[in-house]
Design a protein around this nucleic acid. Structure first.
Length: 914
DNA sequence: TAGATGGACTA
DNA sequence: ATAGTCCATCTAC
């Protein structure tokens, strides 16, 4: 089937202008937008369309301005720097051989709509290249949108995904939401979710308008206010498909490029990569100015004026593209006492990323970049990927060759996809910084370079753009890539030289770093790569069930409120509860609004039916949006499992966190929540095993405080909350009521959070005096705990930090703030930090020990860590053996004055394992 | 389209 | 009341 590509020139020019840094050439002429458009056109050519046209807005008013003089009246005038690029852009487009279409009286969109519909009728497949989502209304079978800057396409299903409505409903959708930038009136406060919801319910804009009086709430009023203007909005957003044109699709053929004109233009605007491509594709040798910079060995070339953000003179970076260069670097690596390495890839998600290049550094300021898979049009020849990786493999896998990385877990995951199991990771600068001071800075390379080297790194955004416009690193030209990537390896080594001498001189910190954090890196990498098996069908069933329940609750809530409203909007809810229904607002949000959170709704649940309905609805909505819907989407197609990312440098107390997905907040408290855990399963013939530390933080408090009463209770193996209640209320343990045990449990938790009488009172629903009384009784029975807390606060004030049992240092901010609330908060954090931090140290040590025991076994794998719990999958025949080994290694992870009790369960899913 | 807000889940 | 992550909505750029 023949193909027509229609390029929305105005959209690209505008987007490139905003997305790219304000580049300019040596003469000072702006080139940023041009650069973006040229790259996009080169990518378009690569796809070899049969027909193609570059459609651009013509100057002057259009029929929409006649319809509505306010149309686009809000738009600021085109910036001069952008206006100056239009003429050169048209010259380049013409020289490349694209037919240029500009039709006055209509917008580029209308010309595109008309041509797309003509081509469609004649059986021509249409690709519309644009960054403008309004064009989604043209999509149907055979008409697809493509965004060359993000390399994404959108067909009917894509439109449905993105907007929640069908392509033929997009016009209605846009009419409802309106567009403030273009001055298209819509329904006030109606966003994409609301518009999609209405259209799902009433089918079309006409349907919505006909049913306007059924829509309740403030938003219903807004809809009725907007009614008169909606037909106009629809006219404004509808793209014409019947513009009279004096040309037809078959005329839209690509012409031969005017190479001479292109060479002149590319030279003038300093488009190196494009220029190289030009010279590569023409046989003629014409005396042309040499490329702006040479590639290869030697000092980094002076930055081209078109890339002002590339720093120069700070390091010597070599682009390795020949075997001889590679051999020279391999020889250097053989000699090196420490090798800094880094990978460049196509994605931040290490499970989905492909390698694009490797950078190496063995001496400060001297680094190289070995590109392996840059595939932009005209990319120079690179060394074969497999050859380079095979050459590096023996070095990277040699445990006797020390290596340093920055966030090396990521690079280790990448390399493992190519059969390289990195060994000998001696240092990681992210972890050096984290152990040195977890809160002084973020631990990404840019922040570290700035803080510890006073060095401004090249930012990723500067080479690849940002947001929706970001390109893959494989699209970055080699010289730019080399400057960026080799710098990463260079700065890694320099950071290590700056941080290590400090860390080395602090024995306790050095121990935490060398015995805990560094050995944990390969353990976490292994867990991420293994992933966990998910029962997608089970989740799908639950999603449907939850959806049904939510719909029912929504109907009841609307009934109860007297009209329809968005149950997800705290704002609308607040208006209904406190203004319309006149219920008392018992709590305020930090901004002074009446709160509608769980506690506030619970407090008025006896006065009206609505609060309870909302609470139930929210519980289900959270489960559905965050878990049952999300987990199924995030299953890796290659492995069929879910792979989280663990972050070793994210939490101030030493814990690790988990994202994409966060597996550390899977529900457990409610029945519906536990059903989600039932979808975490083991393969046929395997079981899920979960091992929990019992009361680990309270045990740590007993150990750190040495309080005799607490130690005694743990040694006796008592129910600790009951024992606490017995002490506080002066009873025998058997005489403690469930309410008293509950109060004692709240006190125990409160202790770990740096309890205040205020907080305890809130938690227990008692007044502050009574709470103070409980606390006084607690501290008189457990004087060691009291002394420990005072000592901790004192140390925090004296040193500015507190320590864990293993010597991890936890700095506190705001301890001497003049703001009383901040200072009190910092003191609570100071009390909590040693306990939370020591627990984190202990489970990290346990993970290292368990992983060492599991190494080489094929009957059990560690999958997840949830702060005080480890989750495994274990082959059925090994359950007993593995259970005992895990118990032993977890219990033995620290020598405390109380036993470290571990509870272990196994079952066919995570829920059963508890 | 990014960031703030409010809410909800975990240990 | 300690430590996190993620979602939908709404606002401001």
């Amino acid at each position: 089937m023949p193909k027509l590509t229609l390029i929305d020139g105005s959209s690209y020019l505008y987007r490139a202008f905003h997305a790219l840094p304000p580049l300019s050439n040596a003469k000072g002429e702006p080139t940023g937008a041009l650069f973006g458009v040229v790259n996009m056109l080169r990518a378009t050519l690569k796809a070899k369309p049969d027909y193609v046209a570059f459609v651009s807005d013509a100057p002057g008013p259009t029929f929409r301005n006649v319809l509505y003089e306010q149309y686009k009246a809000n738009r600021p005038p085109m910036p001069d720097d952008l206006r100056a690029q239009i003429e050169p852009m048209l010259k380049i487009v013409g020289a490349l051989g694209f037919p240029i279409l500009r039709v006055s009286g209509v917008e580029a969109d209308d010309v595109i709509g008309t041509l797309a519909s003509q081509a469609h009728e004649h059986g021509v497949e249409v690709l519309i290249s644009t960054g403008d989502k309004d064009l989604a209304q043209l999509v149907r079978t055979g008409i697809t949108l493509i965004n060359t800057m993000t390399n994404t396409t959108m067909d009917s299903a894509g439109v449905m995904d993105k907007f929640g409505v069908k392509p033929e409903q997009i016009v209605d959708f846009l009419s409802l939401t309106g567009d403030t930038v273009d001055n298209v009136p819509g329904v006030s406060k109606c966003g994409p979710k609301t518009a999609a919801k209405w259209l799902a319910e009433y089918g079309s804009l006409d349907g919505v308008m006909a049913n306007a009086d059924k829509v309740g709430g403030k938003i219903g009023e807004y809809l009725r206010e907007a009614l008169p203007a909606l037909p106009l909005s629809r006219q404004l957003v509808t793209i014409k498909t019947d513009v009279p044109l004096d040309f037809t699709v078959p005329q839209l053929m690509l012409r031969e490029p005017d190479v001479e004109a292109l060479r002149e233009l590319y030279t003038r605007y300093e488009f190196k990569a494009a220029l190289k491509e030009l010279d590569g594709t023409t046989a003629e040798t014409i005396t042309a100015p040499p490329p702006a910079t040479a590639t290869g060995v030697g000092p980094a070339p002076a930055p081209a004026a078109a890339k002002p953000s590339i720093a120069s003179g700070k390091g010597e970076y070599e682009l390795v593209t020949t075997q001889a260069q590679l051999d020279a670097w391999l020889a250097r690596l053989q000699q090196a006492p420490l090798i800094a390495f880094d990978t460049e890839t196509t994605s931040l998600d290490s499970m989905q990323a492909d390698i694009v290049g490797v950078s190496l550094c063995v001496e400060s300021c001297k680094a190289c970049y070995i590109p392996l898979a840059h595939d932009y049009p005209g990319a120079p020849q690179q060394l074969p990927r497999d050859l380079v990786l095979a050459a590096l493999k023996p070095i990277l896998e040699d445990p006797t060759r020390p290596k340093v990385g920055q966030h090396a877990k990521y690079d280790m995951n990448i390399l493992s996809h190519y059969g390289i199991a990195v060994q000998g990771l001696k240092h990681d600068t992210m972890l050096e910084s984290y152990v040195w001071n977890a809160t002084a800075t973020r631990h990404d390379m840019d922040s570290l370079a700035k803080r510890y080297l006073d060095y401004e790194t090249v930012k990723y955004e500067a080479v690849a753009g940002k947001g929706a416009k970001q390109i893959s690193f494989s699209q970055v030209d080699l010289d730019t890539a080399c400057n960026y990537a080799a710098e990463d390896a260079d700065i890694t080594l320099r950071l290590h030289h700056a941080l290590w001498p400090q860390l080395e001189s602090e024995p306790k910190l050095r121990q935490v770093y060398e015995k805990i954090e560094i050995p944990l890196v390969p353990v976490l990498a292994g867990m991420e790569q293994r992933g966990v098996l998910i029962d997608v069908n089970e989740l799908r069933k639950q999603s449907q069930h939850l959806g049904k329940r939510m719909h029912e609750l929504q109907q009841e809530a609307w009934q109860s409120a007297g009209h329809e409203f968005n149950l997800d909007s705290p704002k609308q809810l607040q208006a209904i509860l406190f203004d319309e229904l006149g219920l008392p607002a018992k709590l305020k949000t930090p901004t002074g609004q009446p709160s509608t959170n769980e506690e506030a709704l619970e407090a008025i649940a006896h006065e009206h039916a609505l609060p309870r309905l909302i609470l139930d609805y929210r519980g289900l909505a959270k489960l559905r949006s965050t878990y049952t819907e999300k987990l199924a989407e995030i299953v890796n197609p290659r492995t069929g499992r879910v792979h989280t990312s663990y972050h070793q440098g994210a939490v101030a107390t030493g814990r690790i966190s988990s994202t994409d997905p966060n597996l550390q907040n899977i529900p457990v408290r409610t029945e519906e929540g536990r059903r989600i855990r039932q979808a975490f399963i083991a393969p046929e013939g395997w079981q899920v095993m979960a091992a929990d530390y019992s009361q680990i933080e309270l045990r740590i408090m007993a150990h750190l405080s040495g309080d005799e009463g607490l130690l005694r209770a743990f040694h006796a193996g008592d129910d600790i909350h009951r024992a606490t209640a017995a002490e506080v209320f002066g009873l025998e343990p058997e005489a403690v009521s469930s309410n008293q045990r509950r109060a004692a449990k709240a006190i125990n938790f409160g202790l770990m959070y740096g309890m205040s009488a205020f907080g305890l009172a809130r938690q227990l629903g008692i007044d502050r005096g009574e709470a103070s009384d409980y606390m006084a009784r607690y501290f008189s029975r457990y004087p060691g705990v009291h002394a420990f807390m005072d000592a901790t606060r004192e140390q925090a004030h004296r040193d500015g930090y507190v320590e864990t049992l293993f010597g991890r240092r936890l700095y506190l901010e705001n301890l001497s703030s003049r703001n009383q609330a901040l200072r009190a908060g910092a003191e609570r954090a100071a009390v909590n930090a040693p306990m939370q931090g020591t627990a984190a140290d202990i489970i990290k040590r346990a993970m290292i020990a368990v992983a060492a025991w599991l190494k080489g076994r094929d009957d059990a794998h560690m999958l997840m860590q949830v702060h005080d719990e480890l989750v495994f999958e274990v082959r059925a025949d090994a359950v007993q053996t593995v259970r005992e080994a895990i118990r032993q290694h977890m219990s033995g992870a620290a020598e405390l004055r109380v036993p470290l009790v571990v509870e272990i369960g196994a079952g066919k899913n995570w829920d059963e394992a508890h």
